[in-house]
Amino acid sequence: MLFDAEFWVAVAFVVFCGIVWRAGGFHQIVAGLDKRGDRVRKELDEARRLREEAAAVLADYQRRRAEAEREAAAIVASAREEAEAAAAEGHARLNEFVERRTRAAEAKIAQAEAQATAEVRAAAAEAAVRVSETILREKVSGEAAQDLIRRSLGEIRTRLRA
């Protein structure tokens, strides 16, 4: 057993561990592991903080997106209402325009009818006066007849034009 290599490796390991212990190497190893553990803990805390911050930012963006969607929907609804109101107003104006034009056309037609009726009456009165004058001249003669014809024709013209 004294000549086995494993025995001497074990003895050398124990001596090495004693020297390292005497030199304070175990404390340095433990301190290094503690520092590494603290660094890993800080990185985990930082990662947790960043994750919470990212979640808050995500929630904020989702809230803003929802708000923007609501605003967009409100804008679309408002635009639709304005378009409908403008269309209704345009339709009302068009109806009013058509109604005014119709009334104006009816007034012009009534005026033309009245004028045509007056012209027909005047023409009829003139024709009646001429016919009456011709008939009276043929049947009545003399100065009294001429005076009677003038008065009668004047009255006929006045009555027919009225």
Results as ranks from 00 to 15, higher is better:
residue 65 R to P: 00
residue 65 R to L: 15
residue 66 A to M: 05
residue 67 E to M: 04
residue 67 E to Q: 14
residue 70 R to M: 04
residue 73 A to M: 09
residue 75 I to Y: 06
residue 76 V to R: 13
residue 76 V to Q: 07
residue 78 S to M: 10
residue 79 A to K: 08
residue 81 E to Q: 08
residue 81 E to A: 10
residue 84 E to R: 15
residue 85 A to K: 15
residue 87 A to V: 06
residue 87 A to H: 11
residue 88 A to E: 14
residue 88 A to H: 09
residue 90 G to W: 09
residue 91 H to R: 15
residue 94 L to N: 03
residue 99 E to R: 15
residue 100 R to V: 08
residue 103 R to M: 09
residue 103 R to F: 04
residue 103 R to P: 01
residue 103 R to D: 07
residue 104 A to N: 10
residue 104 A to C: 04
residue 104 A to P: 03
residue 106 E to V: 13
residue 107 A to P: 04
residue 108 K to M: 14
residue 108 K to F: 10
residue 109 I to D: 10
residue 109 I to V: 13
residue 110 A to I: 02
residue 111 Q to F: 07
residue 112 A to Q: 08
residue 112 A to R: 09
residue 114 A to G: 05
residue 114 A to H: 07
residue 115 Q to H: 09
residue 115 Q to W: 05
residue 117 T to M: 13
residue 117 T to Q: 15
residue 118 A to N: 07
residue 122 A to W: 04
residue 122 A to I: 05
residue 123 A to Y: 00
residue 125 A to F: 02
residue 125 A to D: 03
residue 128 A to P: 01
residue 128 A to W: 01
residue 129 V to W: 01
residue 129 V to E: 13
residue 129 V to K: 11
residue 131 V to S: 10
residue 133 E to Y: 03
residue 137 R to D: 07
residue 139 K to W: 09
residue 141 S to T: 12
residue 144 A to P: 00
residue 145 A to S: 08
residue 145 A to E: 05
residue 145 A to R: 03
residue 148 L to M: 02
